[in-house]
Amino acid sequence: MDESEVRRIEAAFTASTRQRHRRHAIRQVVLNVAGVLLFLAAWEVLPRSIPGLNLLLFPPPSGIVGALRELALSGELFLHAATSVARSLGGFAVGAVLGVSLGVVTAMVAPLRFLSDPMLHGFRAVPAIALVPLAVVWFGIGEVSKLALITWGTFFPVWINTYLGARDVSATLVRSARSLGASRSTLILRVILPAALPLIIAGLRQSLAIALVVMVAAELVGASIGLGQMIATAQQIFRIDHMFVGLLALGIIGFALDRLFVFVAHRLLPWYGRT
């Protein structure tokens, strides 16, 4: 093989590899879309194929499109969705900040850990949804009540994951940092927190999903606006199609927030998952 022959083979090899990757990516997207279409088709056909089924109770996609257009065009849907997302993210933010701070503190200060362990683990076992009635009595059906509930629900997964991550930081990394002259605050901010970040992120992701669940539960009980309230109202006025629009919106929001979260996490942790 002479030099030009080598170049030619390399170029052909690179091109074919690239083409294979592209074909693979296209195939994946096509299958994704096909899966959604198959599901919609089955949903469209199934209610109609069962004799005597009330299509108002079990609306196929075609029966929901009208409600979707109506709610979207009036702007109502986006108002509900925006309110619900804002509530979820607000409670999530408070819960996340509290969870990370307390997680680091309980991992680093043993007396505080032993002092708080029984209460934290005891409270952790209480589902946030069980507290909805109490929150309504204490805080009413306003924003405070919802924020408190979502904060409660999101705090615990973040706390426990941060705690585990900070506690199990490699002793050699801590020794490295200290022998390089790191102060306690440098150690926490530049070593322990980054080292715990993969677990913290896992806790945050879990909490983000919980924030949506608690948000809906709180809105179902009482709210003047929000997707949960929209679904609850739809039940009262017997608009099953409106309910489905609400469910669809929740599904899309949950999916989009999770994707966004993963994207941001990968941006923050280019080093993660490799050693």
Partner: peptide, 19 residues
């Protein structure tokens, strides 16, 4: 009494900060 920057340490397992 404690670790400090007047003594550099190199570990077997590198111990670089991965982030």
């Amino acid at each position: 009494a404690a670790p400090g920057p007047d003594r550099g340490v190199v570990f077997q397992e590198y111990a670089l900060f991965p982030w």
